[in-house]
Design a protein around this nucleic acid. Structure first.
Lengths: 212, 212
DNA sequence: TAAAAATAATTAACGGTGTAAGGTTTATCT
DNA sequence: AGATAAACCTTACACCGTTAATTATTTTTA
């Protein structure tokens, strides 16, 4: 029965861990990744900055956790937009997925940039692998309608090189337009119209080219 | 005859200005935008950090100049890949342009991220307009084969809303794949093959859909 | 040419950052 | 209750951008 009770200490630890991440997310949303500071977090939480080192080995590790969380948040948004029930056609899903991706990105610009661009000073690509597996989960959701188009189970998609490449190309195509939009490079135009038009073009090419 | 000679002072000033920018570019290439520091530049150039304020009002302004320079460097790379002589077909140019864009991005990853993503702490989108006009120049070069496809003069492209939107969608489509690649999100795949395949798909859709 | 003005550099200092070291309180386990 | 370990604190170091006050140097003016 000793495992059931959670000691006062580790509950407090868990809660404080969450508070630190929440505050870091708050700072991220306010001023981007460069606005996140351990001292600021400590100030907001009424604790000293070095105390945070009990919870994270470094600022970099805290940011890594943010990346994972934000990636899973995007995955959730996609899941929500692509229900399991097959009552929506593949064509419909192939439009809904990029749409949901875009909606999340525009509502979470700072998080979007955090996920997709290394801007941290000493950050190499795959790190510990936490972020990679989170992104993999996100991609699995995004690929669902795409796999269905070709008649595969979503899990089997990784084993089909050609289809996987086609999916990644499809992903990159709308990702780029969104990346430009998120960073205000299309503010001078009606970016939503451009996006819709391009999705039609890309999905059209999908049907036309896919030679199975 | 007083305007012809360049006084000792302003020549030295011009050279030092260039040295500062060069050193900042060096730091950018080494560790990204967050690795650029006025103190470090001063150290490398054998001068105190506050002395740099004679040349730039703030670090932000120095970075703005870097953005402009890098954008024009990309524009030059595109110009070089798209010669004025019409001996290359439009189809050919529609492949060469994204290709050159990608080559530049992969050879200048830090510069690419600097141009397209706001990560600076207090940076709003258009600022003084220097970066906007540099980007506009780059886009004009990139749009050249695209305008030719539709039979316009490159300069007239801005006046045709529909064609401009189509161009921006086209741009965003390969920009995204490259953005993912630059930031190591496609390291686990043969990204070059994905890119080529997607360019074919996008350009194919271009011809198919464009209803003029 | 000598004085005056403008420019460019200096050092010192303020407030900010991540983080390492050492000491102290506090909760948990034996 | 005493031992142990976790969590927190303060202090300190080495960075950072930026401002202020000062000095040296160059250019301009009288």
């Amino acid at each position: 029965m000793e495992e059931a009770v959670e000691s006062r200490r580790i509950r407090h630890r868990r809660e404080l861990h969450g508070s630190i991440v929440d505050e870091a997310l708050h700072q991220l949303r306010e001023g981007g990744v460069s606005a996140i500071s351990l001292r600021g977090i400590g100030r907001s939480l009424g604790m000293s900055a070095p105390a945070i080192y009990t919870y994270f080995p470094s600022l970099t590790d805290l940011i890594t956790e943010l990346i994972v969380r934000c990636t899973l948040s995007l995955a959730d948004a996609l899941r929500h937009a692509l229900p399991d029930s097959p009552d929506s056609s593949v064509e419909r899903q192939l439009r809904d997925a990029p749409q949901a991706y875009r909606q999340w990105a525009l509502a979470h610009r700072r998080e979007f940039n955090l996920i997709f661009f290394d801007q941290i000073i000493g950050y190499s690509a795959p790190e510990s692998g936490e972020t990679v597996s989170a992104q993999s989960e996100m991609l699995h959701v995004l690929a669902r309608p795409f796999a269905e188009l070709h008649g595969y189970e979503p899990a089997d998609l990784l084993s089909r090189d050609d289809v996987l490449d086609e999916f990644l190309g499809w992903w990159g195509s709308f990702h780029g337009l969104i990346a430009l939009e998120v960073n205000h490079h299309l503010d001078w135009r009606n970016s939503e119209r451009i996006f819709h038009r391009q999705i039609e073009a890309i999905n059209g090419a999908l049907r036309g080219v896919s030679g199975d």
